[in-house]
Amino acid sequence: MRLLHTADWHLGRLFHNVSLLDDQRVVLDQLIEIVDRDAVDAVLVAGDVFDRAVPPAGAITLLDDVLFELCDKRGLPVVMISGNHDSAERLRFGARHLRKAGLHILSDLAHCATPVTLAARGVEVDVFGIPYADPEHVRSRFEVDVRDFDAAHRFLVERIDAARRPDCPTILMSHCFVDGGTASDSERPLNLGGAESVAWEPMRHFDYVALGHLHGPQYRGGEHIRYSGSFLKYSFSEARQRKGVTLVDIDKQGAVTTDWRTLIPRREVRVLEGELETLLREAESAAPEHRDDYLLVRLSDRHALLDPMSKLRAFYPNVLHLEKPGMLEARGAQQLDREKLHFSALDMFGDFFEQTSGEALDEEQKEVMRRLIDELAKEGTP
């Protein structure tokens, strides 16, 4: 059986306030071409189908068009789970009825131990899905004492492991941050406190693990525990990442092989660095197909520049962000800012103290406050 593993579509995404719907349609058309060319039997979408809980109408229309092509026209099963950007409740609207059409939306934790059974080419595979769920949700739903993402995820994996058929190959889908994974700027943190990672070890016994959340293609713990990555670059930190989808072949014994298919974006995402005049000279000879790329320009000039954005956009209309690190003596400026902060913080506290107490700080009180401010500043210094 041949499966196509993809994730993190983020339909409706804005990139520096530019809608990517047309870009997303281009790569989804390529995805459908891969399905046809490589004789795919089913498609797995490992979460973050939409970019936000209430997606724009255009994103919903695009998803509907793609699912019509896959499920209705081609009769292919599609299995998707909800991610942290999705609203699980909205995504699974009509899910019970859509199963008859081959669309399986797994976004209810209560049913995570119930598999979707796929059959093709004489091979039968059980697919289990763990939608994104924070520890509080798992703790409330199952009345178990889990306090972090790892404990919550481990609990759900163990429930699924207990429900597996020993004689049937099993695929696990999960939207999570596996410990040690390489993140990029466009992924929304799962937890503001930072304790968001989960261990790969509980998943190692599954025949294949289709992961979502991290936008760079990678694997953790074993080549069968894999992120397909997003199919477009959603931040400039992803400029050097390759984007595509993963083909997964699995046989009756659960033996798995994977292959990669590259997707070609409508516009590339690039970072240009250098002095303005140099970049403008290079732009005159730039290939026409690169002029519409989405660009971050990082200028190294150390003197004031007159309207550099307009000059750059005369050649590159999609310059989305401009940085000028050359105009700052970074370390000196940071040190100066810290010193100003020390003095102004003491002055501000002195004004506040005098207004509330009616008395000015004496020298002993000033010294105590000065030491406290210095200690806080040191704690905040990287």
Rank of each mutant, 00 (worst) to 15 (best):
K366G: 12
R25N: 00
E33T: 15
V178G: 03
L70W: 10
G216T: 10
S174Q: 01
L296A: 11
Q334M: 13
L312N: 06
T182V: 15
P308T: 05
H85W: 07
A7L: 09
S235F: 10
F352L: 14
F231M: 12
L312D: 06
A120P: 02
S237P: 01
I130P: 02
E143N: 15
V178K: 00
G212N: 09
H213Q: 06
R371V: 13
S300A: 15
V35Y: 02
V40T: 04
P55T: 10
D351E: 15
C71K: 02
G326V: 03
L322R: 10
L109I: 08
P288C: 07
E364I: 12
E277I: 06
R164S: 04
V248E: 03
L14N: 13
Q355G: 03
D51E: 13
D351F: 06
D161V: 05
I81R: 04
V271I: 15
R165N: 10
V66I: 15
E323H: 03
D64S: 09
L296F: 06
Y234I: 09
R371P: 01
G12T: 02
V49Y: 08
F352A: 10
A314D: 11
D150E: 05
F352H: 14
S140L: 13
P202T: 09
D351V: 10
I264A: 09
M80T: 06
V198F: 00
E33K: 13
P77L: 05
V319F: 04
P325F: 02
F149V: 03
I171E: 02
F142T: 05
H224R: 14
P189I: 11
D72G: 00
H213W: 04
E143C: 10
E277R: 12
